[in-house]
């Protein structure tokens, strides 16, 4: 893993970005959510393995908005707060499917290689 440390900063970010964006899309699969909700979801689902930094989360949301994979809308939350709710667009849904299957193939392949002999 030490090799990663030597990667230029930009590339390290890119690696994270792609993953984070997929995770955000996944978090919005069932229902729309706001930034706080998304970060809670990711924290909960990963068993607090992923500590998602807002400095990454917000730009990622912006990129997804720019790609029109998600759409933002101001709504009132159940506890009466005004918040910006993000939801998957049809394109975003398609992208989620594509990226999920790609990611799964990737992890399976990784696992096969990394799995101990025998």
């Amino acid at each position: 893993m030490s090799t990663v440390d030597y990667l230029p900063e930009d590339e390290k970010l890119a690696l994270l970005q792609g993953t984070l964006e997929l995770l955000i899309l996944r978090s919005l699969k069932l229902e729309s959510n706001h930034a706080y909700g998304i970060s809670q979801f990711l924290d909960r689902q990963s068993g607090s393995e992923f500590m998602v930094d807002n400095g990454s989360l917000y730009p990622a949301l912006q990129r997804l908005l720019q790609r029109k994979w998600i759409a933002g809308q101001w709504k009132i939350s159940p506890n009466g707060r005004r918040a910006r709710y993000y939801s998957l667009t049809p394109v975003g849904r398609k992208e989620l499917l594509r990226a999920t299957s790609k990611w799964q193939r990737f992890t399976v392949a990784m696992a096969k290689i990394l799995a101990p002999e025998g």
Binding site: H34, A35, Y36, Y58, R81, A83, R84
Partner: peptide, 16 residues
């Protein structure tokens, strides 16, 4: 402006 409001809301959620 939207971003500021969004972050404000985020903080409010956390505080709550």
């Amino acid at each position: 402006r939207e971003l500021e409001q969004e972050m404000d809301a985020h903080l409010e959620f956390l505080i709550e």
